[in-house]
Amino acid sequence: MSIDRRSIFFDLTRANVLARGCVQPDAGRCVQCGICSHNCPLGLDVRAYAWRGIPITDSQCLTCGQCVARCPRGVLEFVPLRPES
């Protein structure tokens, strides 16, 4: 059962990111090319959030980072949902 400690740690870390982090667009850098939406495994329209400059708070967002990594203009980044007190 040696894998358990590691996988629990991983799951907790992941849960932490899921619970506390989200993807935040910088509308000023975005040119609406749609690479983010095209690569979202859940088909979320990330680009529509970027147009409005609001964080992707859709509960389906996995924070998998596909959109963050593939955006050619550095529009998207992970930010904490609430600043840690």
Binding site: V31, Q32, C33, G34, I35, S37, H38, P72
Partner: peptide, 21 residues
């Protein structure tokens, strides 16, 4: 549509329909 996105359509990174806003 996204004019800057035309370059990504040309290089094959996004399909044409993705450019239509």
């Amino acid at each position: 549509y996204s004019r800057p996105g035309l370059a990504y359509y040309l290089s094959g990174r996004v399909p044409e329909r993705q450019l239509l806003l």
